[in-house]
């Protein structure tokens, strides 16, 4: 399956799922796909049809949207 990964604010990638190395799993996961485009699961959220998907699940969609997590705002506002 050919997967389109639209990283919002950055590039769109076309990836052949069969070429994605897996971490011992039979099928590539969303996390494997992120590694393929050099993104860390810590810094993004993967959406399928607008809903976040668990990154350890096998890829079952040909169209993915990736949102980057950013945190800037007001230093030391709380928390």
């Amino acid at each position: 399956m050919r997967v389109t990964v639209d990283v919002k604010g950055e590039d769109t990638h076309e990836i052949d799922l069969e070429s994605v190395p897996t971490d011992g799993d039979a099928e590539p996961t969303y996390q494997d796909l992120l590694c393929e485009i050099e993104l860390s699961p810590h810094e993004v959220s993967v959406l399928v049809d607008g809903r976040p998907v668990p990154e350890d699940q096998p890829v079952d969609s040909a169209e993915l949207t990736v949102l980057r997590l950013i945190k800037g705002g007001s230093p030391s506002a709380g928390g």
Partner: peptide, 26 residues
């Protein structure tokens, strides 16, 4: 600083919260 201990006292007095913080905990 907003914490779990004081968040209710601070937030519940207002209609809307505007998050302009810079850290994930907040």
């Amino acid at each position: 600083r907003i914490t779990a201990a004081n968040v209710a006292d601070l937030v519940d007095e207002y209609d809307v919260v505007l998050d302009a913080s810079d850290n994930f905990a907040t």
